[in-house]
Design a protein around this nucleic acid. Sequence first.
DNA 1: ATCGCTATGTGGGCTGGCGCACAGCATAAA
DNA 2: TTTATGCTGTGCGCCAGCCCACATAGCGAT
Lengths: 235, 235
Amino acid sequence: MPIDTHTRSTNSVLQVLSPKENLRLSMLSEQVDLTYGDVLCEPGKTLRHVYFPNSGIISLLTPLDGHDSVEVGLVGREGMAGIGLFLGSSVSPVQMLVQGSGIATRMKAASFRNEIKRNPVLQRELNRYLYAFMAQVAQTAACNRHHLLEKRLARWLLMTHDRARSNEFHLTQEFLAHMLGVRRVGVTRAAGLLQEKNLISYRRGNITILDRKGLERASCRCYEAVNDLRDSMLN
Amino acid sequence: MPIDTHTRSTNSVLQVLSPKENLRLSMLSEQVDLTYGDVLCEPGKTLRHVYFPNSGIISLLTPLDGHDSVEVGLVGREGMAGIGLFLGSSVSPVQMLVQGSGIATRMKAASFRNEIKRNPVLQRELNRYLYAFMAQVAQTAACNRHHLLEKRLARWLLMTHDRARSNEFHLTQEFLAHMLGVRRVGVTRAAGLLQEKNLISYRRGNITILDRKGLERASCRCYEAVNDLRDSMLN
DNA sequence: ATCGCTATGTGGGCTGGCGCACAGCATAAA
DNA sequence: TTTATGCTGTGCGCCAGCCCACATAGCGAT
């Protein structure tokens, strides 16, 4: 694989590394396509790789009672998927599902484990990311209990928007329902309300963000809370 | 403070340390009482200490829309409260509330930060705990979305039972409602159902576990799922 | 013994989200 | 053009959990 400026990662975690360390990691990793619908790891299975998305979005889903599952976290270019390997476990409790196509820097489990041992900068950065991610999950737990679907949907769209490169992305209501842990019909109604307010428009699986500010107002504070914590760690 | 066998911690994280390391940590820490109702840290405030409970239970609550809040995790002698300091942040996103009285080994933020830098065993153990804890939070997020109150209450009682030393503990329905993010009336009904089945009995804030196995059957699988993951990390 | 506080029990009306069923309607393939 | 398939919209009955209000019951203190 050619190593040039184009392989320089746009992933936030990798970006803090020095050019030298970055080069080193490039050689230990490969660029892979994330394709909508791909499952990178099933729950309970061995984590073979870690993924640092440069673009695209990965959903983490916790299985429930067999076939049901709910999204508990979202990973974009701000983070990494496969946290277990960082924390000393090779089993993933969650399903890793590609929710938006893109490209990720992928590293084999062994290489990654070896790398974090000798790279304190990467370690530190992953610790910070981990904390922000935990806050995201915790907020989701609380949000799931208390907030109405319309607000949760707005929050979810904002989080996706942050990690997508464009104002438009492919998401059917069926898929959204799965992520939010509600029925499709519920999403139809909630999305209808957001569309009535001219905050979004959707058409056969393609959602467009029309009014970002308005959507923020329509969402619950959870969105803001998670972002605030992340920002507070950047100093 | 006297250092003898009585100060030898019963906290699971500290227990994996060698006697020598343990002694070292004893000198850097103090034993403090955890008193029911104490708030060890408010959300958004600076973490001044970490707590390794030897007995007692600490609830972690995520604030929501001002005054509301929901429990997202439980810490007993299997873990540590103040994870942020381990991950490089000194701000707590959650409220730390003592839910069951006991004793904890407490360490100042600076001492702790210094200690983890030089103690890879402690680091490794905290990583493992962290992963189990994240799974707990993620499962809670999913559970909050899908499971009926009665099952969630059963799960919560089991988790508390695991961390308490006895079959009986003080918990008003009002408090339970707060933890579970529901109304007191809801808890009255759910607890009534569990009592009808002779799984628990309660009387003016004192709950007694009568049938542990039965309670496990009455709870959702989330309880089992979290425990399974923790166990799977012990090999 | 009385008062007051805390904890628990009950009832009525409301609504968000659920399950089920079916009716458009667009795009792609035949 | 037709057919199939995938995505979206609607209607109906149901129920868990909501809010509000009030009724009892144990328990401590003056």
